[in-house]
Design a protein around this nucleic acid. Sequence first.
RNA 1: GCCCUUGUAGCUCAGCUGGAUAGAGCACCGGACUUCUAAUCCGACGGUCGCAGGUUCGAAUCCUGCCGGGGGCGCCA
Length: 589
Amino acid sequence: MRRLIRHNGDPMADPIVTVAELLLPAFAAVGGEGADPVVRPSDRADAQANGALAIAKRLGQNPRQVAEAVLAVAKPMLDTICSNVEIAGPGFLNLTFADHFLAEQLGLAAADEHLGVRLAPVTKRVVIDYSAPNVAKEMHVGHLRTTVIGDALVRLMTYVGHTVIRENHIGDWGTPFGMLIEHLVDLGETEAADGLSLGDLDGFYREARAKFDADPVMQDRARHRVVLLQSGDPETMRLWHLLVEQSTKHFNAVYAKLGVLLTDDDIAGESMYNALLPEVIERLQTAGLLVESDGADVVFPPGFTNREGDPLPLIAQKRGGGFNYSTSDLACVIDRVERVHGDLLLYVVGAPQAQHFAMVFKVAEMAGWLHPPTEAVHVMFGSVLGPNRKMLKSRSGEPLKFIELIDEAVVRAAASVAEKNPHLSADEQAEIAIVIGIGAVKYADLSTDRIKDYIFDWDRMLAFDGNTAPYLQYAHARICSIFRRAEIDRASVRNDAVVLGEPQERALAKRLLAFDSAVWDTIDKYSPHRLCTYLFDLAQDFTAFYEHCPVLKAADDATKQSRLVLCDTTARVLAQGLDLLGIVAPERM
RNA sequence: GCCCUUGUAGCUCAGCUGGAUAGAGCACCGGACUUCUAAUCCGACGGUCGCAGGUUCGAAUCCUGCCGGGGGCGCCA
């Protein structure tokens, strides 16, 4: 990958970052080592450095004088990239970038395959746990957020150079499998396999559950079958595998439709950790953490209490010797640290499990399995709500199936495409409808702060105005249209000179250069909505530019070439940004 | 009861490692298509940032308390 380098040897970056680095020595000279310039985008100028106020407070000095002292040191450097620098208010340093600097920086970004986004200074092995559907159950809306957010994080981490290990922690183990396997036996393998391959996983599960609930004989058989499963009985394993196989076919069909990166190679189901579970107990025992309580073997991590205010245990081994999901998640930590050698473990799991993971991570730390710099993070998220602010359900009251969700999105998008752009061929319309429909669903999910619940609203997510995928995709398609119409090769303009005249050109250039910060901000907080907000701002800046600055009919050739660079770079940032979210940007729509 | 999380414009949401007048979008109102896709743009309207204290030169942002929403709190995952 070709990377462009700034004069100082560092890769290029957002000008805000560049100027912050530039100011660092001046602030250190006045405020002492490590004094933060606190550079932020400003509506009074291009950037403002607020660091003088903090220094003044710490040293008990007049903030304006501190700002002046900083400026005295930094002025020669700033003059190379700023057209105006002034001290304002109580001691803000307001910085206006010189047009030639922005133009030059944009030229570098345009020529850069990585669009000016810095690579990670240290490459980590990032293990990302996401999606995690259950075997013998259909994927439903409850898997939407983990799948979409997790996949975006995979793409983001990969983009900045980290090594990413995807793990799909499917629910393929545990007591329900006794019942499911017995039901399979009752139906006969061939018939059961046929039924399952039709995709009626939920029907199969429902029948098994009904039989189990009604019939004590079935309960006995199921219990016995669980024992066989736990002990690795070959015939039982073969039947179990049949269930897993049919289910993963279904998962893969969903992932393929959605454009999710997960494959069979990423499956790291609960069953995988089964062999490790006794070792977890042994190691907890050795570490002296295991306590017997009510017949179960538990660990009491400090800081957790129950209803009565008593210490809350993490149950490692149930009364009677069985294991549970805590045991499994502890094994999982061990595996990801010691076998996979992950430096950063991300768990993209819903917010209700916050306490569970806090306890698991705590116990893993106490046992010495998890220690800095290795870090485990529960990337939690809120629920998807229906218009009534309750959990989203289908008409029948069941959780909305994933396949139905996708299909409806595509049908709705197809209606819009047919209405707005009827002259496209049927094939092309169908293709675009898929990209728009699925993009809309994903974007709606990613564009709000993941920690909060959000209301699932078809009309809003498929609207062409506002912070939606179609709006961004449309901006991208319009740019492609310019090049198509003029028969200009996109790549051919990437080394052309940039000239910034109109305010819309300048605003667009500044925004394009902020892609770097947007990507990193998103990664630092594991919050894809930050990238969404950026892309929406970019699309708005672009359409403003598009309305005010004719490209192909620009006044002179230099302006036209420069605007083509702006257009091409915008399209690339939009397409790349959407791709990082797992969304496709079509060339026409 | 304890813990976690959340409360910003009529609606849906940004902003929350404290910074100068709180931002979008939708809806509503007024403009702009013989002009690179009007699936768009420009403008106007609209908020005691749940309430009350505190810290600070400065608080939507940090701290405390209260009120409201959601979730969790021993052998399901």
